[in-house]
């Protein structure tokens, strides 16, 4: 297969289908991320070789046509199709774009978008509810109103008695209690044979997308007063994770608030291949979508899920 450079905007646009993996910075809304990416794509497409204005088709033998000034411009261009008259060839609204699952404003990390024909895939990915992995950092000693650092501080407390092994033990017990809740949310009666058979398979996906389910909590870093938990969850939102940190603080006989939430994995889409802010342009997006296509080829069950339990492949 030979590779050639493409200068033609319609060719690029025709192949602009798939899922892209964007690294969302904290403090920026998803809507703004989407707008910024699409704006740059449209801008870069317009800078490439776009379609020329149409030729004007005037019938040569129009009744009384010899005095018609248009007749002299039979082969000239149709000015009504000029870029200055119609606007840029590619506009943001021309690119269809759908979010796979949203992230809150305080969250940074993997954010998946389906573009054009990739919207179909992105919807299927979302319907299969892949697990998302987070690194959530909390700070001990201070509680705030919204559990985030930009809100008003409500309580201060001493945290010198907290040790990492105590936090790990708490994380393990929380994980156990959340997994018990997981069986309740799988959609069958707990006292039935079906529930027993499902439970034999291991960790289960929830039946609907209303209740958050947590599969794993692990302490990965502790530097008093900061600590970082790795959380695997489905159907979570950033407020839920922040209130989890708050609960951890209370269980540890102190208070805590959440300083940062970072999504490091969404299904099989990892943070390693996600697109940073300086790559938010056509070249970066095309390259990124090619990489993400391989992820989908390697793991076809992201789209066609046939098992109810979580899988490792």
């Amino acid at each position: 297969m030979s590779l050639t450079k493409v200068y033609d905007a319609p060719t690029v646009f025709r192949h602009l289908n798939g899922i892209m993996n964007i690294y969302k910075p904290a403090g920026m809304k998803v809507k703004h991320v989407k707008n910024a990416v699409l704006h740059n794509i449209a801008k870069d497409l317009n800078e490439m070789k776009v379609r020329e204005p149409r030729k004007l088709h005037t019938p040569l033998l129009e009744p009384g046509g010899d005095a018609n000034p248009l007749l002299r411009k039979i082969n000239s261009i149709d000015l009504a199709d000029h870029i200055l008259a119609t606007g840029p060839r590619y506009q943001i609204s021309d690119i269809r774009c759908a979010l796979v699952a949203g992230l809150g404003i305080h969250t940074s990390g993997v954010l998946l978008f389906g573009i054009n024909k990739g919207i179909n895939q992105s919807q299927q990915v979302q319907r299969n509810r892949p697990v998302r992995a987070y690194h959530v950092t909390g700070r001990l000693g201070m509680a705030t109103e919204t559990h985030f650092p930009d809100a008003r501080i409500t309580v201060r407390a001493d945290y010198r008695h907290v040790h990492p092994d105590r936090v790990s033990a708490l994380a393990a017990s929380m994980q156990a209690s959340h997994q018990r809740k997981m069986y309740e949310l799988c959609g069958v009666d707990l006292q039935s044979q079906a529930a027993y058979e499902i439970a034999c398979k291991g960790l289960l996906r929830p039946a609907d997308n209303t209740q958050p389910v947590i599969y794993g909590i692990k302490l990965i870093d502790f530097q008093r007063p900061d600590f970082t938990l790795e959380i695997h969850a489905i159907n979570e939102c950033e407020e839920y994770l922040a209130s989890l940190i708050n609960e951890v603080g209370i269980e540890l006989r102190t208070v805590a608030h959440c300083t940062s939430i970072r999504c490091i994995r969404h299904g099989h889409y990892g943070v390693e291949t996600s697109l940073l802010r300086h790559g938010w342009n056509l070249r970066g997006v095309v390259k990124n979508m090619r990489e993400q296509r391989q992820v989908l080829q390697k793991h076809p069950h992201l789209i066609n899920q046939d098992k109810i339990e979580l899988r490792n492949d």
């Binding site: 000015l79 009504a80 199709d81 000029h82 008259a85 119609t86």
Partner: peptide
């Protein structure tokens, strides 16, 4: 305005 461009000499000059 694009609808008028082919007819109006002013708009053509503007282009």
């Amino acid at each position: 305005l694009a609808a008028y461009v082919n007819k109006s000499p002013t708009l053509q000059k503007f282009l």
